[in-house]
Nucleic acid binder design. Structure first.
Length: 154
DNA sequence: GACGATAGCCCTT
DNA sequence: AAGGGCTATCGTC
């Protein structure tokens, strides 16, 4: 198991990417100290591009064991949400054919690979909803995506 | 209206 | 058996 580290200007924190041959997990690291960046895996470079506004989607092979069938459904559906757009928990639930809206939220809360699976693009019907790493992150990510898309259209 | 409490949803632990 | 990254609904003000 190897850990890559990159810095994200978007939310001003480090991002740790854990992988074997395939991507295993992504975590945000809030720390004051300066960390050494390390980029070995393809997905790390892609994430780096993402945080620089130069990539809108990811090559998708990842290896995340221990997820229930339900959680997989939720995450798969979430992957389809396009860069810069959002979907509500209830709409997502509808798409995978369940009324368990809150269970959808719980599944997203355990998303092992944020950004790649864009759980930040899933919002509450009235409001923003939650985010494991803090809703401020979520807001920053969404604003960032909006901003970069605008830049492209000009 | 707006806001808070409540009661359902159904998966997870 | 309890509790969630939710929501629709029903009291209050």
């Amino acid at each position: 198991m190897i850990q890559d580290i990159i810095f994200s200007e978007v939310n001003g924190c480090y991002v740790e990417i854990e992988h074997g041959t395939e991507l295993r997990s992504v975590r945000f690291i809030k720390t004051a100290e300066k960390l050494m960046e390390s980029k070995t895996h393809k997905i790390t470079f892609e994430l780096d591009e993402y945080f620089n506004g130069k990539r809108y989607d990811f090559s998708c092979s990842y290896d995340v064991p221990g997820l229930s069938a339900f959680a997989r459904k939720v995450l798969n559906e979430t992957r389809k949400v396009k860069y810069g757009s959002t979907i509500t928990y209830s709409e997502l639930a509808k798409r995978i054919g369940t009324r368990a809206v809150q269970a959808v939220g719980s599944a997203l809360a355990k998303n092992p690979i944020p950004i790649i699976i864009p759980c930040h693009r899933v919002v509450a019907k009235n409001g923003i909803g939650g985010y494991s790493a803090g809703i401020d992150f979520k807001i920053q990510l969404l604003e960032f995506e909006q901003k970069t898309l605008m830049g492209d259209n000009l």
